[in-house]
C-alpha cells in the first residue's frame, strides 16, 4: 500500500497510543467517549430542529 493510499484509507486521527483523559474532580472520562457523547447530543438536537419533509402518504 502506498503512503498516499494509506493516508486516505487510514483513520483521520491517529488512534494508536495511550488514550487521553479529562479529569474534573472525581469525574474522569476519556476524550474519545466525551467526543461521542457530544456528537450524540448534537445529532439529537439536529434531529429535533431539522424539518422532516414528507411526500404525502400520511393520514
Amino acid at each position: 500500500m502506498t503512503a498516499a493510499l494509506a493516508l486516505v484509507v487510514g483513520a483521520l486521527i491517529n488512534l494508536t497510543g495511550p488514550g487521553h483523559y479529562i479529569h474534573w474532580g472525581f469525574i474522569q472520562i476519556s476524550v474519545g467517549n466525551l467526543v461521542v457523547i457530544g456528537l450524540m447530543v448534537v445529532t439529537f438536537i439536529a434531529a429535533i430542529l431539522i424539518p422532516y419533509h414528507r411526500k404525502g402518504g400520511q393520514s
Binding site: 439536529a46 429535533i48 431539522i50 402518504g57 400520511q58 393520514s59
Partner: peptide
C-alpha cells in the same frame, strides 16, 4: 401498515 399518523414525520 401503508400509512402512519402525521406526527411520525420527524427525524427522531
Amino acid at each position: 401498515p401503508d400509512r402512519q399518523p402525521s406526527y411520525m414525520a420527524s427525524w427522531i
